[in-house]
Amino acid sequence: MASRSAPTSLRKRIRRKTPLLTMVSPVTVWMVILIAVPLAYVLLISFCSTDESHHIVFAFSVQNYVKLFDPTLLSIYGNSLLIAGLSCLISILVGYPFATIMANSSPFKRTLMMAFLMLPFWTNSLIRLYGWRSILGSNGFINSVLQELGLITQPLELLYNHFAVVLGMVYVLLPFMVLPIYTVILKLDHSLLEAASDLGARPARRFFKVTLPLTSSGIFAGSIMVFIPALGYFFVSNLMGGGTTQLIGNVIARQFKEAFNWPFGAALSIILILITLILVRAYTKTGGKMDDLGAM
């Protein structure tokens, strides 16, 4: 009996789902062309190699993945993780208070602060980083002012070091930290804070016992969105670090642009994607919502 009704029900199901499919399929096609196919290609060539004239040779090998454990590369990973971690930490320390103040302000002030946060985004980040160079450079704003005031005789070396790279990262990525935290603080039930006060918690303890744990998902979401790009934003380390700082992103960029070793660059990219996936998985495992990550 079940087998007899199966064909009709299948036809019915197709008919019922057809409108839905026509609505969804353009997006699906788009995503497949723009995301799935390139990613599959990256994965594919990461298992290939190149000949002398840098052409990709489609023969399966894992040599690119073995090469990932090269000692010089390992130190670059370490460095990159350090820079990204530091950028993340500073973004939290700056972004959390900012998000708190923004969430507790009047709607007008909120809009104003949001504008200050978002307006720079309408300018290309390269141009904005050049702005920082002109502030930090040896003939830049800070050095000239300090020299005018007679506080220093030699210009300070503010650019071309880790500090400058971290500053650039924080500057470019701060909104990605502020927005998720802001969203969580805004959703925080105010009566919970009142309950904590009511039960005798002073402001500092209330913050660490109630506010912080309940907004940690925002911090985690923001950290993912700062940490991952900070591993890869090679242009920041190029402009602000001037070649003194090597990130994973720099290595990948060099494989594609200078060394023409696309397969090795692809293997590095796959590793970066894996790190991202692991972090996102950890985030959702601890109760984070994917929607909050896509808040931007």
Partner: peptide, 19 residues
């Protein structure tokens, strides 16, 4: 401040700490 007062409150929405 509320934390200095010798009164306690039962809130309308309970306000239990969810974590």
């Amino acid at each position: 401040e509320p934390f200095e007062r010798n009164v306690n409150t039962v809130f309308q929405s309970y306000a239990l700490f969810p974590h």
